[in-house]
Design a protein around this nucleic acid. Structure first.
Length: 224
DNA sequence: CCCTGATTCGC
DNA sequence: GCGAATCAGG
């Protein structure tokens, strides 16, 4: 298959419409998903959110060349501090001034001073008192009252009300707050009431009177 | 493993 | 220009 003008137009339309490359390839037929993507790029069509390039900085950070050698700031290339005279005192001075400001706290850092835990029966590890959360206070007892349906849906036939004896004709659209079903007595043997059966089932017109359906945009879905 | 789009590269 | 192969995230 080649990229005729007509097929390119369809590709553009479907791509712009937001269809996935697979769907477009399926729709056009005779081409692979890769072919569609490749062609779309060559046409300069707007790129769509790629799972791979979702966030530029993260991808960049991950792809950052190891050989680029972003030196860790902690490890300064500067020469190691020379050991000076008076061996006893300098070590203290080497510490940052900030450390001197709050010496007691920094000394008991968790890493240098692991907390001691005792093992309970069965081998579980006991928490220290400081790790324990305050218990969640029990909710005060309340009387449970059935939820009141919103005014919109009150007296309407919901999905749960459906059965064989009532009309299942949808009123409105799913997701809308007042979406419900007709709920009138169903025409026996049919899922809808008489009125909606008249809408759902149209009498078959004589063959010669039928007009061919108008062409769908972009040729419509491919029939397989 | 399935999906997705991007990119590469031999044709 | 084309698209399979490959990559890489969801």
């Amino acid at each position: 298959m080649s990229w005729t003008d007509e097929r390119i137009d369809r590709l553009k339309a479907l791509w712009t419409k937001g269809m996935t490359a697979s769907q477009i390839a399926d729709e056009l037929g005779g081409v692979s998903r890769n072919a569609v993507i490749g062609k779309a790029h060559r046409l300069g069509l707007q790129s769509r959110p790629s799972p791979v390039k979702a966030n530029e900085p993260a991808a960049k950070a991950k792809k950052a060349k190891p050989e680029a050698a972003p030196k860790p700031a902690a490890e300064t290339p500067a020469p190691k501090p020379r050991v000076e005279a008076a061996p006893s005192a300098p070590t203290q001075r080497a510490e940052a001034p900030a450390a001197a400001a709050a010496p007691a706290r920094s000394q008991v850092a968790p890493e240098s001073q692991p907390i001691i835990r005792s093992i309970g029966p069965g081998g579980f590890i006991r928490q220290t008192p400081s790790e324990q959360q305050a218990p969640i206070p029990p909710a005060p007892p309340r009387r449970l009252v059935p939820a009141k349906p919103s005014a919109e849906v009150a007296d309407k036939t919901s999905l749960l009300d459906l059965n064989e004896k009532i009309c299942k004709w949808p009123m409105g659209h799913p997701g809308e707050p007042d979406f419900h079903f007709c709920g009138n007595p169903a025409n026996p043997g049919f899922p809808y009431c008489v009125e909606h059966c008249g809408v759902a089932y149209q009498a078959q017109m004589p063959r010669r009177d039928r007009r061919p359906p108008p062409p769908l945009p972009f040729g419509g879905p491919r029939i397989r």
